[in-house]
């Protein structure tokens, strides 16, 4: 040991010196610098995260707007379609109703006409019967000859018709 120059006082001196060096460097160099590095890394990480967040937010809001617009467009289209449908239905309804009304009117008119015709036919029949009876009475009262009968029937019919026309 002596030949190598290792001595206890020398070893202790260097041990103490080196311990002081380690402590001083730890306290005044390692500590502040690593703190600085960590703080900076933290800050960079935070700002990156914030940027990422902002970007996703922007993307999501753009998507929302797009969605809203699509929805609005669909809504408009739906409303137009609804309106068209409603209008079509209304016109159909109106047409149907008017058709029904017309049919009703026609039916009524037809039934009225029928009734009137029936009534007229009934009247005519009644009148013809009466006339026939009258004509028969007249035929029976007089001598019959064809010319006179014909003349008579004609007169009756003429009278009957004219009276009916009255």
């Amino acid at each position: 040991m002596e030949a190598l120059g290792i001595t206890l006082p020398g070893l202790l001196t260097q041990l103490i010196s080196f311990t002081i060096l380690v402590f001083v460097l730890y306290k005044f160099l390692y500590g502040p610098i690593t703190r600085m590095l960590d703080e900076r890394a933290e800050r960079i990480k935070n700002s990156l995260e914030a940027a990422e967040r902002a970007r996703t937010e922007a993307a999501s809001s753009a998507a929302t707007v797009e969605q809203e617009m699509v929805k609005a467009r669909q809504e408009g289209q739906r409303m137009i379609a609804d309106a068209q449908e409603a209008a079509r239905r209304a016109s159909d309804q109106i047409a149907e109703r008017s058709r029904l009304q017309a049919e009703e009117i026609i039916a009524r008119a037809e039934s009225e006409i029928g009734q009137q015709r029936d009534a007229a036919i009934e009247d005519l029949r009644r009148e013809f019967a009466g006339l026939a009876v009258l004509a028969a009475e007249r035929i029976v009262e007089r001598e019959l000859d064809v010319a006179r009968h014909q003349e008579l029937i004609d007169r009756v019919l003429e009278e009957g018709l004219s009276s009916r026309n009255n």
């Binding site: 001595t7 006082p9 020398g10 010196s17 080196f18 005044f28 160099l29 610098i33």
Partner: peptide, 26 residues
């Protein structure tokens, strides 16, 4: 009885240099 070696002086000089650099850096 304590021998102050020339290498101790150099080590202290090295410590001093490091201290100065520490001061400059921080």
């Amino acid at each position: 009885g304590y021998q102050l070696m020339n290498t101790f002086v150099m080590f202290w000089l090295a410590m001093l240099v490091l201290l100065i650099l520490t001061f400059l850096a921080t």
